Amino acid sequence: MKKLLLLISIFVLISVIVNSQSFIENAPEGFDLPQTEVLAGKIDTIVYESNTVGTTRNALLYTPPCFNFENQCPVLYLFHGIGGDEFEWYVNGSPNLIFDNLIAEGKMNPMIVVLPNGRAMKNDRAEGNIFERDKVEAFSTFEQDLLNDLIPHIEANYPVIKERKYRAIAGLSMGGGQALNFGLGNTNQFAWVGGFSSAPNTKEPNELIPNPSKINEDLELLYIS
């Protein structure tokens, strides 16, 4: 997972134009550890009203070092796998430390990263049989929760740039399928899309990308691993 986080960090370098592929065999030593003299960002829990689900929902939110409400930032929405929740990336991957280190090295623009719960239902905990039909369907329902509830909440309360060119979406496993489905299905909302070991919830190619040339025109980057 930590390798995937490094790849995601690279993917969201919005100032970089990708001209060729590169392969990373091993992450640099200490990339996910606190570094001396590196300023630390913050991870907070946020609560938003979900009209889609009919309740309030939680998400984690990373703000970069030296964050303030006067400077607008790009934003990444980062999704977890089927067995996780909004804490999965934070608990298992130290994303805040990775982002802090990349920002300090000048390899990543300061940005806000939203880590939501992609299981859009009233009891959204990863408990019991996580493969039950209603729980799996809730990952599809999350598209409406994301577009109609979470993104508007973030844009109303945090200084993110409200343009698709500065809005990224990515995910792992079930979340990777979500990112491809939601991102490629809403290129008017997202210009950066990443799927990492995407689960079989990804739509069929002819449904997902009926017009490849338009996708090429719309996206800054499509990253699949």
Rank of each mutant, 00 (worst) to 15 (best):
E88F: 02
E37D: 15
G128R: 04
E37K: 15
Q72S: 14
P34A: 03
P65H: 06
A191I: 02
D32I: 05
E132S: 15
E163T: 14
F131K: 06
T63H: 03
F67T: 10
E25V: 11
L97H: 01
L4Q: 13
M121P: 01
L78T: 00
G83K: 04
N109D: 14
P116G: 03
V38F: 11
L97I: 15
L13K: 14
N211G: 02
E207N: 12
I103Y: 10
G30W: 01
F182S: 01
I169C: 05
I46Q: 02
E143A: 09
V12N: 10
W192H: 12
L39E: 15
F131E: 04
N19D: 12
M111F: 01
N92T: 09
D145H: 08
L147S: 10
S22G: 07
G81P: 08
P210N: 11
G54C: 10
V12D: 09
E207I: 14
V75L: 01
P28D: 03
N129V: 02
S15Y: 04
F23D: 07
D124H: 11
I130N: 05
L97T: 15
D145G: 08
E163M: 06
S213I: 14
A138W: 10
V47D: 12
L60A: 05
I98P: 05
E25M: 09
I209D: 10
F139Y: 14
T55F: 02
V75G: 03
P110A: 05
F87E: 07
K42F: 02
F196P: 03
K162P: 09
V91G: 00
E143D: 11
